[in-house]
Design a protein around this nucleic acid. Structure first.
Length: 477
DNA sequence: TCTGGGGTCCTAGGACCC
DNA sequence: TCTGGGGTCCTAGGACCC
């Protein structure tokens, strides 16, 4: 199997960095960004990390400290972050079209083609590699015998040297063009690229580099020894303590475990994890996009809601939002799930979680149908006597609208919505989208969403949408 | 007083079938 | 008295990710 050069670009303290781009006066100040409803800290600038502000810290506990220490506090502004994220991705496409956007602040790159010849060989490769490619069985055996076998996932030294230069260029240019600082990890597998970016971040202060390479086996193993096992991609809060307890403290020791043992003890994902740490590529460098399978909108309320009347507003809003999102992405949903819950932190009041779903007669993305169905589920779920703190609506079994529309039905599946009604609702839904795009979101909304919205989440410290709203353009004075 | 939101994948267990 | 074995499909729940 050909060794690939996989990069992972990870934006540093992404949300906090976005906030800093348009406020040069905050360049050296600690900045934290809060989750929706101004709940807890979800991003910290390096200065905020230095103040030991923990990730996930509730804002009410941080408030006084922040004021005393001059910490800049911002509410989440996803319109801004989403746009900055697109700018970073566009920049990365300078070096390869093979970019896989993994999350709002991370993307995998496949850089192999920049170095390989037409046969997929790296310059000077014959010096370290058999002319004949390995059979699958040989490759497997090599992985089994790791680390005593010939190294897998290596590239020639000359290629590594050239790759270092490219890494430097990518990091510097992205920073220059977007204002966002990034770290770059490079390795023969996604898991190693992830580990490398982690190491680059952790060791930047000592090395002065914003990138790290994990190809050469010896250097790779040394680096993995410095990566605590709980920081490895795929090791979560359940498995980490089990590993540590049995003496596996770092990524190198994890890589030494038998893949089959990992499968038996945990699951196939942990087996893949070990293989990838050994240099065997299990995941493709760049995933071809697969259609999204579910979609949800949920919010904690600014203040609790007790009556059915008041609950219908947020649930209608979430359903309408989902319908608009489905249309924007060209999807339809086969079912809808609605849930509501009280605050798990308020122990003095009775707790309740309730959720239920319904299938649509035919997959749909009509705002009317989604709102009606969501309200039907809600009315069946509702019980009085509780202070509800959060609700959510999820579209289930989403699929491309084009495929669903191509399906032929022998019978009329939905007597309540004959073809003519479906067509009219589709047209109206599209019109709503156009009006809201032109005159601002919420230019048109459903009466059931209500005008006075007591449930609306708190959002006390939002920055202007510098890049997506003409009225919020930064001014030069 | 005040504690986020949006995803995917895997597994186990039950229903059902032959 | 003795009571198979294997497949598929579905769902709920858990674990992980950012």
């Amino acid at each position: 199997m050909q060794t690939k050069i996989i990069g992972l670009v990870d934006c540093d303290s992404f949300f906090a960095s976005c906030e800093k781009v348009f406020r040069p006066d905050w360049r050296t100040r600690p900045v934290v960004v809060l989750s929706n409803n101004d709940g807890c800290v979800v991003a910290r600038s390096p200065e905020a990390k230095a103040l030991q502000i923990p990730m996930g810290e509730p804002y009410f506990r941080l408030k006084n400290f922040a004021r005393a220490r001059g910490v800049v506090v911002r509410s989440a502004n996803y319109a801004l972050y989403g746009d900055m994220s697109r700018r970073v991705v566009t920049t990365l496409e300078t070096w390869t079209q093979r970019v896989d956007v993994y999350s709002i602040d991370e993307a995998f790159l496949d850089l192999s083609e920049r170095f390989c010849d037409a046969k997929g060989r790296y310059p000077g490769e014959q010096e370290i590699r058999d002319e004949r490619p390995l059979t699958v069985a040989e490759a497997r055996r090599r992985v089994q015998e790791w680390p005593n076998a010939r190294a897998i996932g290596e590239i020639p030294q000359a290629t590594e040297d050239a790759l270092e230069e490219l890494a430097q260029e990518i990091v510097e240019t992205t920073r220059k063009w977007t204002g966002i600082p990034v770290s770059l990890g490079l390795g023969p597998t996604r898991t190693l690229a992830k580990a490398a970016s982690r190491i680059a971040k952790d060791e930047c202060a000592q090395t002065g580099k914003k990138y790290a390479l994990l190809f050469d086996q010896e250097r790779r193993n040394e680096a993995l020894k410095r990566l605590p096992v709980e920081k490895v991609w795929g090791v979560g809060r359940r498995i980490a303590p089990v590993l540590i307890k049995s003496g596996v403290r770092n990524a190198y020791e994890l890589a030494k475990l038998d893949p089959l043992f990992m499968r038996q003890s945990f699951s196939i994902e942990q087996e893949r994890l070990v293989r990838e740490l050994r240099g065997e590529r299990v995941y493709d460098a760049v995933d071809s996009p697969t259609p999204q399978r579910s979609m949800q909108v949920s919010r904690s309320f600014g203040e609790t809601v007790a009556t059915l009347d008041e609950l219908e507003k947020p649930v209608s809003t979430f359903a309408a939002k989902i319908a608009a999102k489905l249309r924007a992405r060209g999807l339809v949903a086969a079912g809808l799930y609605v849930y509501l819950m009280t605050s798990r932190f308020n122990e003095k009041r009775p707790q309740r979680f309730a959720g239920d779903s319904l299938s649509f007669p035919r997959p749909t993305n009509s705002s009317f149908e989604l709102v009606q169905t969501a309200l039907r589920i809600l009315r069946a779920l509702y019980a009085s006597g509780y202070d509800y703190k959060k609700a959510g609506v999820a579209a289930l079994e989403t699929s491309p609208a084009s495929e669903a529309n191509a399906r032929q039905y022998l019978f009329e599946l939905d007597p309540a919505r004959p073809e003519a009604v479906r067509a009219r609702e589709a047209l109206l839904s599209r019109t709503i989208d156009r009006l809201n795009a032109r005159f601002g979101k919420d230019a048109v909304f459903f009466a059931s969403e209500g005008v006075a919205r007591a449930w609306r989440p708190n959002s006390e410290f939002v920055s202007p949408c510098y890049t997506t709203d003409w009225d919020a353009l930064p001014r030069a004075r």
